[in-house]
């Protein structure tokens, strides 16, 4: 019982990170109907930016308290948002109106480019980071097993929830969010009503990248090890989460992220750690076969 509770706590905090990234996949899919395969690497850029910022703060002796973590998040979000914007501007916008596969191939190219760029500029070795957030609570004790809720896990959940709350408000209550939803439903019509659709799409990438940066920073602080290649696996899992939740659905992305996090954690806990990725991807295959629209996805209606 205690063991399962611990796994639940671990699974939720991991799932939150997947959820944040999955939102970026699902948003871009919703608005321009493409899978942004470079999104996982944008997450990796976010993690690296956070690492560099933390190392700078540590060397200045200023890595203290929640203010410093907030600063790390803000720096990572701004820098990564700029990357997100640039990727869209350089690799996707020129291909808009081209055949459907073109931006997809371009996205894969962008993914490889970002990986290699970080490998060259930051080195190929794994980057460790000493734990910067310590401590936690003892939730319960059963026999010899202690259920721990660490500060970092609380931090991940609370930061993710507040970021998602702001994001939900942005999408449902602001003119920008309305424009994004309008573009998602009928881009040409939105343009005819005076909405600058190119800028709306750019902002979608910027917001998605900022969310991925939050995920990257939290991932770094939680696991303390990153390398230039983390974007691939985490990205594909977040993509799985987006598909599981129903691609195009924002609440679906968060739900999918949580489920993938839980599946992966429980699989590692009760079956085998080596096969945890297989469990996650088996879910992707099952969803694609039996429930292609996902849990909260809409039925694709053929436009005539």
């Amino acid at each position: 019982m205690a063991y399962a509770l611990q796994q639940l706590i671990n699974g939720i905090s991991l799932g939150m990170i997947y959820g944040l990234i999955a939102v970026g996949y699902t948003m871009v899919y919703g608005i321009i109907g493409m899978i942004n395969f470079a999104h996982g690497d944008v997450f990796m850029i976010g993690a690296f930016t956070a690492l560099i910022t933390i190392v700078l703060l540590l060397s200045g002796g200023m890595m203290e308290g929640p203010g410093a973590i907030l600063l790390v998040l803000l720096v990572s979000m701004s820098v990564t948002a700029l990357y997100g914007w640039t990727v869209e501007r350089l690799a996707y916008r020129p291909l808009r109106g081209s055949f459907r596969l073109a931006p997809l191939i371009s996205a894969i190219g962008m993914s490889i480019l970002l990986q290699n760029y970080v490998q060259v500029s930051q080195g190929a070795r794994v980057k460790p980071l000493e734990p910067i957030v310590r401590g936690g609570f003892e939730v319960m004790r059963e026999g010899g097993f202690v259920v721990q809720l660490s500060t970092i896990q609380i931090m991940i959940v609370s930061i993710t929830l507040s970021v998602l709350a702001v994001f939900t408000w942005l999408v449902t209550r602001t003119p920008l969010g309305r424009a994004m939803r309008a573009c998602e439903q009928d881009r040409k019509m939105a343009a005819l009503l005076g909405v600058d659709t190119d800028r709306t799409i750019s902002l979608t990438f910027v917001i998605g990248a900022a969310l991925a940066a939050v995920a990257g920073s939290l991932y770094l602080i939680r696991y303390g090890v990153i390398d230039f290649y983390i974007g691939f696996l985490v990205g594909v899992k977040a993509f799985t989460a987006a598909v599981l939740g129903g691609i195009g659905s924002l609440p679906g992305a968060v739900l999918g992220g949580l489920l993938i996090g839980l599946i992966e954690t429980f699989w590692s806990a009760y079956f085998s750690v080596q096969y945890k990725d297989v469990a996650a991807f088996a879910v992707l295959v099952m969803v694609l076969i039996f429930m292609p629209t996902g849990l909260l996805g809409r039925q694709e209606v053929e436009k005539v």
Partner: peptide, 30 residues
């Protein structure tokens, strides 16, 4: 060609996007 999934009011607000965006410093203000 309405935005079917949005409310009637939201449809009309999308049409005023420019004016709203200008008033909010292009989204940043909002």
């Amino acid at each position: 060609r309405l935005f079917q999934g949005m409310t009637a009011l939201e449809n009309l607000l999308v049409a005023q996007h420019n004016r709203l965006m200008a008033a909010t410093g292009f989204g940043i203000g909002a």
